[in-house]
Computed example of a mutant assay.
Amino acid sequence: MDEFRIEIPQPDIEDLRDRLRRIRWPRSLPDASWDRGVPVEYLRSVVDRWLEYDWREWEARLNAYPQYLTRIDDQPIHFLHARSPEPDALPLILTHGWPGSIAEFLEILGPLTDPRSYGAGPADAFHVVAPSVPGHGFSVPLEQPGWNHERIARAWAVLMSRLGYRRYGAQGGDTGSVVSPLLGRIDPEHVIGVHINGGLAFPNARPGDLDDLEPRDQAKLQAAERVRRTGTGYAELQSTKPQTVSFALSDSPVGQLAWILEKFHDWTDPAHSLPEDSVALGHLLTDVSIYWFTNTSATSANLYYENRVVADSAASASSTPTWPHSPDPTTLRSAVPTGVAVFPTDPAIRHILDREHMITQWTEYDRGGHFAALEAPDLLIDDIRAFFRTVR
Rank of each mutant, 00 (worst) to 15 (best):
S28R: 12
S28L: 08
S28H: 09
L29W: 10
P30D: 12
P30M: 03
P30Q: 04
D31F: 13
A32I: 05
A32Y: 06
A32R: 13
A32T: 11
A32N: 05
S33E: 11
S33L: 05
S33M: 07
W34K: 08
W34H: 09
D35A: 15
D35E: 13
D35F: 09
R36P: 06
R36H: 14
R36Q: 15
R36T: 13
G37E: 04
G37H: 10
V38E: 07
V38S: 09
V38K: 02
V38A: 03
V38G: 05
V38Q: 02
V38N: 04
P39L: 12
P39A: 07
P39D: 08
P39G: 01
V40Q: 15
V40L: 13
V40I: 15
V40W: 02
V40F: 10
E41M: 05
E41W: 11
Y42V: 07
Y42I: 00
Y42T: 08
Y42H: 14
Y42D: 03
Y42E: 09
Y42F: 09
L43V: 03
R44C: 11
R44P: 04
R44D: 10
R44L: 06
S45T: 13
S45E: 14
S45P: 01
S45Q: 12
S45W: 01
S45A: 14
S45Y: 01
S45C: 08
S45M: 05
V46R: 04
V46A: 02
V46H: 03
V46C: 04
V46K: 01
D48N: 11
D48P: 01
D48G: 12
D48Y: 06
R49E: 15
R49A: 15
W50P: 02
W50K: 07
W50F: 04
W50D: 03
L51S: 08
L51G: 12
L51K: 10
E52F: 11
E52A: 15
E52Q: 15
E52K: 13
E52N: 13
E52C: 11
Y53N: 04
Y53I: 02
Y53L: 10
Y53W: 14
D54W: 10
W55N: 03
W55Q: 02
W55M: 02
W55L: 03
W55D: 00
R56V: 10
R56G: 11
R56P: 07
R56M: 11
R56T: 07
R56L: 14
E57A: 15
E57S: 12
E57N: 11
W58F: 07
W58H: 12
W58K: 09
W58I: 08
E59M: 05
A60H: 05
A60R: 11
A60F: 05
R61I: 01
R61P: 03
L62E: 00
N63V: 04
A64I: 08
A64R: 15
A64C: 10
A64W: 09
A64V: 06
Y65W: 09
Y65L: 09
Y65N: 06
P66T: 05
P66D: 10
P66E: 06
P66K: 05
P66I: 09
Q67I: 03
Q67H: 05
Q67W: 06
Y68T: 05
Y68N: 00
Y68A: 03
Y68F: 14
Y68I: 02
L69I: 14
L69Y: 01
L69H: 08
T70E: 01
T70L: 04
R71D: 12
I72Q: 13
I72E: 09
D73M: 12
D73K: 07
D73N: 15
D73F: 00
